[in-house]
Simulated scan of single mutants.
Amino acid sequence: MSEPMRILVVEDEALILMQIEMMLEEAGYRVVGTAMNAAEAIALVHETRPELVLIDLRLGDESSGVDVAHAVRAIGGITAAFMTANARSLSDDLEGATAVIAKPFTGAVLEESLAYLEDCVRRPPPAELVPAGMRIAPALLKSFAQMRL
């Protein structure tokens, strides 16, 4: 059996952060850290080297999840995905993130989305279709299509 996927959660609302952390751990993932603002998140990305960073778009002390996604992309080798109720405010390229999971979401939607993202990270291209409630960056979908050729 493979090691659980290592995930960093970036969310500025403490109760939501705890709920997401609990859902991830119950689903068998390893939460390597949590952050409530961009500076904290970027420091933890460097420190913990997660496979996946789940990011709320609007963060504490008026920082932005977009800044975290750009930092993750610059580091390389780590996947960033937004979890936000403001998914429509993102550009078509998802501001550098791989995916966006629309809030509010159920435990089932989160689990399906994480399974898909785990395939993106560990076994690309994913065999399954993009789950409901999730949007994938067009560039990533294009690269998956090319992999299948």
Results as ranks from 00 to 15, higher is better:
Arg88Asp: 15
Thr79Val: 15
Ala97Trp: 03
Ala127Leu: 14
Ala115Gly: 11
Gly107Lys: 09
Glu62Thr: 08
Gly33Leu: 00
Ala38Val: 02
Leu110Asn: 03
Gly28Ser: 04
Glu128Thr: 13
Val100Pro: 01
Asn86Gly: 11
Pro124Cys: 04
Leu17Pro: 02
Met134Lys: 01
Val66Asp: 05
Gly133Met: 03
Ala102Trp: 12
Ser89Leu: 13
Ile42Asn: 01
Ala41Phe: 08
Glu118His: 07
Leu17Lys: 10
Asp12Ala: 10
Tyr116Asp: 01
Ala74Ile: 09
Tyr116Val: 04
Asn86Tyr: 15
Gly65Asn: 06
Ile7Val: 15
Leu141Phe: 00
Leu44His: 08
Glu26Lys: 11
Leu149Arg: 14
Arg6Leu: 05
Ile101Ala: 04
Val32Asn: 01
Arg58Ile: 13
Phe105Gly: 05
Arg88His: 15
Val31Tyr: 11
Asp61Ser: 12
Ala127Ile: 12
Leu57Tyr: 10
Leu110Phe: 03
Gly65Ser: 02
Glu25Asn: 08
Ser91Pro: 14
Gln19Phe: 14
Ala74Lys: 14
Phe144Thr: 05
Leu57Gln: 10
Ser91Tyr: 07
Met5Val: 07
Glu47Pro: 04
Gly133Ser: 01
Val45Lys: 07
Glu112Phe: 11
Arg135Met: 01
Glu13Phe: 15
Gly77Cys: 00
Phe144His: 08
Ile101Ser: 06
Glu51Arg: 02
Lys103Ile: 05
Val53Arg: 03
Ser64Trp: 10
Met22Glu: 14
Ile55His: 02
Gly28Lys: 02
Ala69Glu: 05
Glu111His: 13
Val72Glu: 02
Gln146Glu: 12
Ala43Arg: 14
Val100Leu: 03
Leu44Met: 13
Thr34Val: 15
Ile75Val: 15
Tyr29Phe: 11
Val66Leu: 09
Ala71His: 06
Ser91Val: 08
Leu90Val: 08
Pro138Ile: 07
Glu47Arg: 15
Ser63Ala: 07
Thr34Ile: 10
Tyr116Leu: 07
Ala108Pro: 11
Gln19Lys: 13
Ala99Glu: 06
Phe144Cys: 08
Met83Pro: 03
Arg135Glu: 04
Ser91Met: 10
Val10Ala: 04
Ala139Phe: 07
Ala35Val: 05
Ala85Thr: 10
Gln146Cys: 09
Ala35Leu: 09
Asn37Trp: 13
Thr98Glu: 12
Ala69Phe: 01
Val68Ala: 02
Met18Asn: 10
Pro4Trp: 02
Val130Asp: 04
Val32Ser: 02
